[in-house]
Amino acid sequence: MPEKTLIKDIMVTDVAAATLPGSRDEVLNILKDKKVSGVPVLKDNRVVGIVSRSNLLSNPEEEQIALLMTRDPLKIKPEDNIKKAAQYLMEYGFRRLPVVDDDDKLEGMITVADIVASMASLQLDDPISKYLGRKGIGPVWCETPLPLVARNMELAHIKAVPILNSELDLVGIISDRDIISASVIEDSLEMSDMSAGSGDDEWTWESMRDTLSIYYSVSRIKVPDVPVKEVMVTDLIKASSNMSVSECALKMKRNRVDQVPVVDANGTFIGLLRDRYLMKALIDS
């Protein structure tokens, strides 16, 4: 029974965290090194925010963690059960919840992936075709520029997109994790002109103005301008549409993937099953 599985039984306790004050580079290094999608932010050892890959991609020029993070995130206790966590994650659209004690001290993290992994042993027999999501953008062409794909994913609030070739064959998947891993920090010097003159007619010689040029450094996250096929994952883990929820959860757990392409009996791609959609089977049970 889902109610008997507690957060403390499945949560991750070895959690890399950022602290205030801090910089974007600190968070970016954690995301790349630990291969996680979000980092809790601490102040005086208490959880005050979370920074995710989406926060970084949405604010490529911001460097301060305090301005990047989502403040006062929803939290959960170790003694709560996974069904409650799944309901929170589905209702608010999050991928992770900090697990805290009564004083908001960090004890661990629980993610969508952790919950889906636990579903593998719950004998949930509904076919996964029942939980295929229909929202967001559809497949994209493998020659599409990566910055365009990243922007479309940001606008649609989705984490992964299937990639098709010109023959409409499924050839890969791109996720926000892949985009962050391929991105770099780019520093540039930019200029701003500030006029020292009055508001005279700009067409007269008398209105020629002294101009003060101010140069300033800008640091931003840059998504490389390459076709998406150069960054996408091509070693795909697929699932059949009649596979049960628990079978699919086990496959996702074993292969450590957040989404699987679903194919019909003829092997034709029919949709991308994201782990968060699979949690609905747990909530409905």
Results as ranks from 00 to 15, higher is better:
M194T: 11
K251H: 08
Q259A: 15
M191F: 09
K253Q: 11
M194I: 11
L189W: 05
T204F: 07
K238S: 04
V171H: 10
A196N: 01
N152I: 13
I163P: 12
L170C: 09
V223M: 13
S207D: 07
W205M: 11
K253N: 14
D200I: 10
V171R: 10
P227W: 13
E154H: 15
I174R: 00
D258R: 15
I158H: 04
L236N: 08
D210V: 12
S213R: 13
K253R: 14
N165M: 08
K229P: 00
T204N: 02
S175H: 05
T211C: 04
L189C: 04
S183R: 06
S217A: 01
E202P: 03
D225A: 14
V231W: 03
W205C: 04
I173K: 02
M232Q: 00
D176Y: 00
E247L: 05
L189I: 13
P162L: 10
D200L: 11
I180L: 14
S188Y: 05
K229S: 15
G197F: 05
Y216W: 07
D193I: 08
K229E: 13
R256G: 06
S217N: 05
H157F: 10
T234E: 14
S166P: 02
S240A: 06
D258V: 10
I158A: 13
N255P: 12
R254P: 04
K229Y: 11
W203K: 07
D210G: 14
L164S: 10
S166M: 12
M191Y: 01
I221R: 04
S241L: 06
T234Y: 09
V228C: 03
V245D: 01
I174A: 07
D187Y: 06
D176R: 11
G199C: 06
I173V: 12
D169G: 13
K229T: 08
V184Y: 05
D176P: 02
D200H: 07
Y215Q: 12
S188F: 02
S192K: 10
E190C: 00
A249F: 10
V223Y: 07
V218T: 13
S198Y: 00
V218C: 07
A160D: 06
V184A: 02
V228W: 01
D169K: 15
D210S: 13
M252N: 06
K159G: 14
C248E: 01
M191N: 10
P227V: 06
D187P: 00
R209E: 10
I174H: 08
H157S: 15
M232A: 09
S241Y: 08
V231N: 04
K229I: 11
S240M: 04
N152F: 15
M252Q: 05
S219E: 14
S198R: 05
P227I: 05
M191A: 13
D235Y: 08
R256S: 10
N242H: 07
S244Q: 08
A160R: 15
V171P: 12
Y215P: 01
A156F: 14
V228S: 04
E206F: 01
A160G: 00
E230H: 14
V231G: 03
D178C: 03
D176G: 03
S244G: 11
L170F: 14
I174W: 05
V245L: 04
S241A: 09
D201Y: 02
S188K: 09
L168V: 09
M153R: 09
V161A: 13
K229A: 12
S181N: 13
Y216T: 02
I221G: 01
N255C: 09
S219Y: 03
N255S: 14
D193M: 07
D210H: 08
P224L: 08
R209G: 08
